[in-house]
Design a protein around this nucleic acid. Sequence first.
DNA 1: GCCTTGGGTTAGTGACGATTAACTGGAATC
DNA 2: GATTCCAGTTAATCGTCACTAACCCAAGGC
Lengths: 235, 235
Amino acid sequence: MHEIPSPRSEAHSPRSEAHSPRSEAKAVRRQALLDAAAGLFAAQGFAGVSLDDLGAAAGVSGPAIYRHFAGKQAVLGALLVGVSEELLAGGLRVADADQRANDDGAAQRGAQGNANDDGAVLRALVAFHVDFALSKPEVIRVQDRDFTSLSPDDRSAVRRLQRRYVDVWAGALAGLHPGTTPAELRVRAQAVFGLINSTPHSVGGAQRGGGRVPAARARELLSAMALAALTAPAP
Amino acid sequence: MHEIPSPRSEAHSPRSEAHSPRSEAKAVRRQALLDAAAGLFAAQGFAGVSLDDLGAAAGVSGPAIYRHFAGKQAVLGALLVGVSEELLAGGLRVADADQRANDDGAAQRGAQGNANDDGAVLRALVAFHVDFALSKPEVIRVQDRDFTSLSPDDRSAVRRLQRRYVDVWAGALAGLHPGTTPAELRVRAQAVFGLINSTPHSVGGAQRGGGRVPAARARELLSAMALAALTAPAP
DNA sequence: GCCTTGGGTTAGTGACGATTAACTGGAATC
DNA sequence: GATTCCAGTTAATCGTCACTAACCCAAGGC
């Protein structure tokens, strides 16, 4: 995907006040399209959503989407690259903050002795990821269901970002499991993603027999399970 | 899907020697189609596979599939209902076996005191599910990616079977976590499925930096993590 | 040895859906 | 106030399938 020229006003501005003249209604539309895409793709899969559906869900109809994206695939690309960046950024932020707190508290005391604080980093990572998964289950679902529908470029971009995110986790795990290969640490991290990302499945549908588990409770439960899985001694 | 009349030959012989006259080449074809479907659907998604692709992968070409299934959706239905039945049957077998062993060993000694043996059942369930996920990652992947492409009937059939499988796990968990609601036990079980089913993702692609984790090692690691997550005290 | 069965095959057929073309109307610019 | 821009719109176009029709031809029962 080439690039949308988009005069100035590059990618930033999470706060979207009177920033560009007034044709930032465009940014709003674009975001509406991405939001609609998250919901529709999650519910029906990338291939199961037509551009007409997608446009309709965002209030415009049909090929208006081409004013914002190069094509259907580009919508998916923007969505998934966005999530991956958001996850990585969050992971780095959380890991840095806790790492820094650690360095402040107990300067350096030998390279391997900071398992205690790797624990703190892990707890923070788990809390972050659980919050993310519980607040945006649709995006989580799309990310590992429709990954293969991405263009080759977007696919490798997403893969790269995901890899870095996994490495943040693997880094935090390294102190806890010395002598374990990096590959195995990554498998461990990804298994925990699977655990946490199970929420779109389990919390999604109305269960028949029993009640639903409230989100706050699910957060605690998943965090506890994730930490247990992360800290379980290597076999 | 109704039933294949399949002349007589009801009760015996799972092994498929000279069982029906010779037009059991049909059964072979059918199975080949299902195998091909598992691989293709896993790799490209249900919507990304054409009937021509599917037929070609099974050695026939195109609409020959209609001699074996009512349509594309019916192939998916047969595949997923089959897996769900296989999982449930395996879960019941394993749970029964271990339950029986327990009853033999220590008759009855009060209703709640058998946590020890619920532990044994859980270990057996975990081992079973991990083996399944490692040996048939494609089917696992299809099951939670293309579930929504099922016909309404097949969808609810699969849902029913999955629900019963989850309940087998929840039953084994009940002794370990007394006072926990069934809904929460199900969430716990499904989270562990997510953990174990992460293998199609993590073991699937060729990693860049580090080596691969051998299957035997992955089995042990995932089992340990799953058990840790299952036995982690409720928050 | 006929004649039915049934799995296969190769040409349609009909939808559906992603793009693209041609046009419109209200801002933003000057 | 005229002109340019550009998000939108509606009406083609073009491919790609799922599925159906019309034929084959080996087997297997009689």
